[in-house]
Design a protein around this nucleic acid. Structure first.
Lengths: 114, 114
DNA sequence: TTATTAAGGGTAATTTATGACTCAATAAAC
DNA sequence: GTTTATTGAGTCATAAATTACCCTTAATAA
């Protein structure tokens, strides 16, 4: 009944800190480019206040806002780096561990031709 | 008057694609760990539907949801990689370009002792 | 094939984000 | 020191996210 979104009852403090640092990184990138909050916000098609929330580490802002900021600052590719399958060492290990020791062809022989 | 959030009137298609790929990466990581949507969602303190939106690339989900997913999958450090000041080549160039050619001490001599 | 489970998707109620506007405080420029 | 511009923050209205619940479809296992 009661709603408990992560932003409402609080993320783990570690995550709050992480999002906060991300916001600061965006702020640094903006200032290095000599852009005001209004400058960057208008390029992102959001208001100054929304961008301000992002820079201040508010976990409630949407992915769209984050993505727009990255795009407007020239970091649009960075989002593809995170959770990348090829960098997921644990995941790759788990996947290979699940492969059968031997491969066994089905009797019906209805295999694919590839 | 009219509200135009990025998610509403649409992000640049390039960004929609990026967010979509990010969602897929999360999905791959989840499946590699043999977790169902319910499994992961409960660890994130979020409903299955919200996680589903994230995996399907909905730009409207909050940063909190993304961060929770990364945390629950063991990628919590990835968020610190993006927009990292030390990887911001353009930003570092702009910053250094703005440094004065010569440093000039103020006459009053009210400098800091550091 | 059949049974089981995961995933997709709809609705209504509630919370929250976002925009638009304004004012105050702070910092930068002169 | 004075002026100007940037930033922070509050309010209200509206759009959207999120939950909880339910049902259907698709995929997996037996």
């Amino acid at each position: 009944m009661t709603k408990r979104t992560p932003s409402q009852f609080g993320l783990p403090p570690e995550l709050v800190d992480t999002v906060s640092k991300l916001g600061n990184h965006i702020r640094v990138a903006r200032k290095r480019r000599e852009m005001t909050l209004d400058d960057l916000a208008s390029r992102m098609f959001v208001t100054r206040k929304t961008l301000s929330r992002l820079e201040n580490g508010d976990p409630g802002v949407s992915l769209a806002v984050l993505a727009s900021a990255l795009w407007a600052l020239g970091f649009e590719k960075d989002l593809l780096e995170i959770v990348h399958p090829e960098k997921d060492n644990l995941g790759m290990y788990l996947e290979q561990r699940r492969l059968p020791k031997r491969v066994r062809r089905s009797k019906t022989g209805d295999d694919l031709d590839f």
